[in-house]
Design a protein around this nucleic acid. Structure first.
Length: 552
RNA sequence: GCGCCCAUAGCUUAAUUGGAUAGAGCAUUUGACUACGAAUCAAAAGGUUAGAGGUUCAAUUCCUCUUGGGCGCGCCA
């Protein structure tokens, strides 16, 4: 919270300064952490912006502002000085840092969280893999990104619903059901020529085996129901083992199959609605969505001339349903192979009467797998793919999630399975978890002493004055900045970088500053710092869905 | 052909959304365990940020072009 407080303070100072020059606008300057070679806690580029506005030399402006800062913000600023190009470097008072550390210790897992904000009701839709087979690693990336983003937004006080959209309608489902049926017949001894475009993974045969052991008469088996049920169970278990749990599984059949008392599905009604406001029209015997009215490059078919709906029609109804459930912000996570779909869904949102900014689509690059340098083909149909479960079993849930969240969603990267296994012992996740383990160990050790002060009011925080200790507390406070950045950029990967940096500073502190010493006052103060570190590491790992073990 | 995304150290990548000398990890080399966990720390080496222009006090970041890669362009899902 320190950076936010300083930004607010500086805004006042700059505003006042500008008014003294007869300028009433506000400026968008930044406050940031300077490069590590520079001995300052924060830096601002405010003078450069002001100089531009006033057509003055930035150095001169900076000098004038510096004087005001020292005068106006005595409770925060220890030192302010002009640096190269007109940067202003700030050193904050230790008291500010100690206060922040106390806030962390007092608020614990609530640190950085904001009160429930009921103005924004957010639905995050992710994974949404078709129930035609187990999840593969690519789905895992979407799962990790979507889940962590949801956790972050929840921490920021939003009302968040995690939703899985289940495409359980359509041609693929028929092929899937038929695949199980053919395996079933094969197992019963029939000679079957299994079609190439059918699902031929082992899991289909497993389902068929189960059905054989349970049922007698083939005429009584609902192959689609049984197959989807089994596959969904598998998906749910895999996700749970990946620390991902959905608030809602939204079935497409609910809007595309289920009918109301007038015999209408939600898809029927959504299309009728678009038609009624002339955002849809008939042409060549088909129903078209006039998506070009909303920025799409061509209109799209909703209902084919043979009367069957397209996938898009379901999606229109689905998004209409989201709005009917009063969501005010929609976040959709799609693989980049769906990017062509963004324009039409954005059009759909607008046709339904909403601002296009309401829809946030996060595209992530699919994980391309390599094994020993050779690309691994990933096709659910041929059964030749690496499942999420396999990867979790190989490298572990924590390492796997950390790995997926290490990079920005739109970065495309190759994942060599052999390499991942080799690196697993040196995976950065252990580096971060080790912080918690080391801290726990010190806390355990400290229990053997009886001269430790536990009352936070009686701690002499002024003893925490080394560079390592200041840097560490500053990084703890940057937890809030990372939250803000994650919200702004809609990404969870900033927290992996944050935690690695925090671990870096902690291990550094550990080398330089012995915690348990003969000096009871210093020991007590440092134990409080350790407590703050543990809370923050645990909070951060929790946002990433990663465990924080006390022993490793 | 049209559109979207990407290109940073040998490899995988970051850069607080336009800031100061472009940061990490892996791999390589060197040093540190008779005090809280060596899954650690300290140090070396590694870069024309694909290339060329442009905008700016300031460009990895924004604009244009070129090259190389990924993906998408159906009355498929």
């Amino acid at each position: 919270m320190i950076k936010q407080s300083i930004t607010v303070g500086l805004n006042n100072v700059i505003g006042k300064y500008l008014r003294s020059k007869d300028i009433s606008d506000s400026l968008k300057f930044s406050v940031e952490v300077p490069p590590k070679e520079i001995d300052a806690d924060f830096a601002t580029n405010a003078a450069m912006f002001v100089a531009k506005k006033l057509k003055m030399n930035p150095i001169i402006v900076a000098e004038e502002i510096v004087n005001t800062i020292i005068k106006e913000l005595p409770e925060f600023i220890e030192k302010a000085e002009v640096a190269a190009y007109g940067f202003i470097n700030l050193r904050i008072k230790n008291k500010v840092l100690y206060k922040e550390l106390c806030a962390i210790i007092t608020e614990k897992d609530k640190y950085g969280s904001l009160p429930k904000n009921n103005k924004e009701k957010i639905v995050v839709e992710f994974v949404s893999a078709n129930p035609t087979g187990p999840l593969h690693v690519g789905h895992g990336r979407g799962a990790a990104i979507g889940d962590s983003l949801s956790r972050i937004l929840k921490h920021l006080g939003y009302n968040v619903t995690k939703e899985y959209y289940l495409n359980d309608v359509g041609n693929q489902m028929l092929i899937l059901a038929k695949s199980t049926e053919l395996r079933y017949r094969q197992l019963k001894g029939e000679q079957i020529d299994f079609p190439k475009n059918y699902y031929c993974g082992d899991y289909i045969t497993d389902i068929a085996k189960r059905l054989i052991s349970q049922k007698q008469n083939i005429d009584h088996i609902d192959f689609k129901y049984e197959t989807v049920k089994d596959i969904l169970k598998t998906i749910e278990v895999d996700l749970k083992n990946f620390a991902v749990e959905f608030d809602n599984w939204f079935s497409e059949s609910k809007i595309a199959v289920d009918k109301d008392q007038d015999g209408q599905t939600d898809v029927d009604k959504a299309c009728a609605y678009l038609l009624s406001k002339s955002d849809a029209y008939m042409k060549d015997n088909a129903l078209w969505f006039a998506s070009t009215k909303f920025g799409d490059d061509k209109d799209r078919v909703l209902r084919r001339s043979d009367g069957r709906y397209t996938y898009l029609a379901s999606d229109v109804a689905y998004h209409k349903n989201k709005f009917e459930r009063c969501f005010t912000k929609l976040i959709n996570l799609w693989g980049t192979d769906h990017h062509g779909y963004v324009a039409r869904i954005r059009a759909c949102v607008q046709a339904l009467g909403f601002n296009k900014e309401v829809l946030n689509v996060i595209l992530y690059q699919l994980v391309s797998l390599v094994r020993n340098g050779q690309p691994v083909a990933m096709s659910t149909r041929t059964g030749e793919f690496v499942t999420l479960k396999e990867v979790i079993d190989e490298v572990g849930k924590d390492a796997c999630r950390f790995f997926f969240l290490l990079r920005a969603p739109d970065s495309q990267f190759e994942f060599d399975l052999e390499l991942a296994k080799k690196q697993s012992s040196a995976n950065p996740v252990f580096y971060v978890q080790y912080v918690n383990a080391r801290c726990s160990s010190i806390i355990r050790e400290s229990k053997n002493r009886n001269d430790i002060i536990s009352d936070i009011e009686k701690i002499n925080f002024n003893l925490l004055s080394t560079k390592e200790e200041r840097d560490l507390i500053k990084q703890l406070s940057a937890f809030c900045d990372t939250l803000a950045l994650s919200e702004k950029t809609m990404g969870g990967h900033h927290f992996t970088a944050y935690l690695i940096r925090l671990a870096d500073l902690y291990h550094n502190f550990y080398e330089k500053c012995r915690v348990l010493s003969d000096d009871a006052n210093l020991t007590s103060a440092r134990l409080k710092l350790i407590e703050g570190v543990m809370i923050t590491v645990q909070n951060g790992l929790h946002l990433l869905g990663i465990s924080a073990p006390e022993k490793m």
